[in-house]
């Protein structure tokens, strides 16, 4: 690691002015789980690191019946998982946060840092897209709010501009929405998912409506399975419907292919994940229903 200046602003305005002052020569550090690895390998040698560690106001988790959940960007994954507010209003989010990566990352990494890094081989983005999340970004000119879908531009690329800080993640009130989340590891020894999937839908007398089915980790950025969503709208899930949806999902997903798993394998896991999450949502047992 090369020497660098370490700054710890105590307020958001101070942090923003530090970013403005140091420009591209500085890096923002939240939990630092990815940043420090890159710095230790000398892939990155910033002159200045601006740590957000003292901005406690960015750790708050709150719920408002009209606005929904607001999660401070600096909330650690373990904070989200353990929050009684999250557990009460979006238990699936608590489950996702409590199961991602490994205990070390959950205790150190933050949900905001995770989204800004935009590494697809992780969990929050997939879930939050299905939940219809939005993000707040602070800059010197003030705040802007945009849908998470617009924030996640591409592989390791976000809409965050130089000098901006992601401050909060917003989840609309769940209403009658059912949310399910599953992650698949290639082997039990992996800590990163090879595929993850989130289902969000309104179940009306058994029939699904307003279906959001998002696949992540398998793709450069989480992908909404639009054709599968359309197919599922208005349908009550049974084994045959789930199998058909799985085939559709496998066909429309555009998986990445790398040393961790090739496209064909990821496609197979997407099919499996789709079938299982739909049967789980319908309260059916996928173990007896091999496609």
């Amino acid at each position: 690691m090369r020497p660098f200046d370490f700054l710890e602003p105590s307020s958001l305005p101070e942090a923003l002015s530090m970013l403005a002052e140091h420009g591209d020569a500085c890096c923002i550090m939240a939990g630092g789980t990815a940043l420090l690895l890159a710095m230790r390998q000398r892939m990155l040698a910033p002159e200045t690191v601006v740590s957000l560690g003292k901005l406690d106001e960015l750790r708050d988790i709150a719920f408002d019946p009209d606005a929904g959940l607001r999660i401070g960007a600096l909330a650690r994954h373990a904070d989200v998982a353990g929050s009684s507010i999250v557990q009460a209003h979006c238990p699936a989010l608590a489950g996702m946060a409590g199961g991602l990566a490994n205990p070390q990352v959950r205790n150190q990494g933050t949900i905001g840092g995770n989204l800004c890094y935009a590494d697809p081989a992780t969990d929050p983005a997939t879930f939050l897209l299905a939940a219809g999340a939005e993000v707040t970004i602070a800059g010197r000119g003030g705040e802007r709010r945009l849908p998470l879908r617009a924030f996640l531009v591409d592989y390791f690329t976000t809409a965050l501009e130089s000098g901006e800080i992601l401050t909060a993640i917003h989840l609309p009130p769940p209403g009658s929405r059912q949310m399910l989340y599953r992650r698949y590891l290639r082997t039990p020894a992996e800590h990163r998912p090879v595929v993850n999937i989130a289902l969000s839908a309104v179940t009306d007398g058994g029939a699904l409506s307003d279906v959001r089915l998002i696949v992540g980790a398998a793709t450069p950025v989480p992908q909404a399975l639009a054709q599968t969503e359309d197919f599922l709208a208005g349908k009550s899930v049974n084994a045959a419907i789930a199998a058909e949806a799985a085939a559709l999902a496998g066909a429309e997903v555009e998986p990445l292919s790398d040393g961790r798993a090739d496209a064909a394998f990821r496609r197979q896991i997407v099919r499996t994940a789709t079938r299982r999450i739909l049967l789980d949502a319908a309260g059916l047992d996928w173990k007896d229903n091999a496609a």
Binding site: Y155, F156, P220
Partner: peptide, 13 residues
């Protein structure tokens, strides 16, 4: 040496 997985996908993008 850092694993070329991200670079491979980056090349595709």
């Amino acid at each position: 040496t850092l694993g070329l997985n991200p670079m491979r996908t980056k090349a595709d993008r």
